[in-house]
Write a protein that binds this DNA or RNA. Sequence first.
DNA 1: TATTGTTATACTCTATAACTATA
DNA 2: TATAGTTATAGAGTATAACAATA
Lengths: 158, 158
Amino acid sequence: MSSLPVVNQPPHRCGALLGQLTRRLQTRSESVLTPLGLRPRHLIALTVLRDLGGSSQQDLAKTLEMDGTNVVGLLNDLEAENLIERRRSPVDRRRHVVELTDVGIKLLVRAEFALAAVEDEVFSGLSDEQRETLYELLQQATHKTNIEACREALPPTC
Amino acid sequence: MSSLPVVNQPPHRCGALLGQLTRRLQTRSESVLTPLGLRPRHLIALTVLRDLGGSSQQDLAKTLEMDGTNVVGLLNDLEAENLIERRRSPVDRRRHVVELTDVGIKLLVRAEFALAAVEDEVFSGLSDEQRETLYELLQQATHKTNIEACREALPPTC
DNA sequence: TATTGTTATACTCTATAACTATA
DNA sequence: TATAGTTATAGAGTATAACAATA
């Protein structure tokens, strides 16, 4: 609201720092997941399956933003460890309904505890209040550009 | 400063949002760099070389946190486009001194303009003030854990 | 004919080992 | 012998194409 002739400095670039923190989080997450026999991808899949309460493989591929062929391999891993189940859908026998097993649910809970500890460590330079601010800023940024991306991708409706 | 019996909520997890924004930034950066014949890796290398004013390949590998063998390939690309020069160090002929060419400097400037525009777009959901806050939080977070990482890695001195 | 899941395959990125030349 | 750079090669991660079963 000031009309002083202040020179408007452009904001600093966040990209490099963002990438650096993400890489650090990724590396440490891998470390704590390895003893549980999981890779980050596996964990994301398990989380999505719990949140959706089961899914077809194609829907899962869309949600994970992965190629369908890679979802097959991912689910093969998880099924081999008895963490998920594939059942033919009774209404459309082409579809596989994928669901978490009890073993999968329990392992997911353990993994989430481990990952929470990783975040606490990586963000230990910030106070709880600062972390909350960071969260809100990131959410605002992702949400805005989500809408933008949607507008770009879809022609008429959105 | 309040002594009310407020329940301390743990802060939200930032990891997922951080990863999402980073991926978005990465994808769009690739898009704008492709017409310039560059990949993100190339740009990071060019930036580091300018900031250091030249470097040996090993030092470059350390700075980029990449394997030395991959730096060779990276530099081969850049040299083929006449963006960098390798010269034998006169004091230690095992070393290659790597420096930007004039062509490299000019292309770097163009790439940075393009990337600034990408950041402006990806962070368009935030005001300049919010972007600055985000920058400061990210910087504080990365710096703290940098020190931590250093303490972990080095036994006595640090 | 289109859709779901699968396999086989190729392409990229990254890391390991062995080689050359210099010290 | 150790170091700087290079090459060849193998291992992940990911994407494309063809195929089987079902709609």
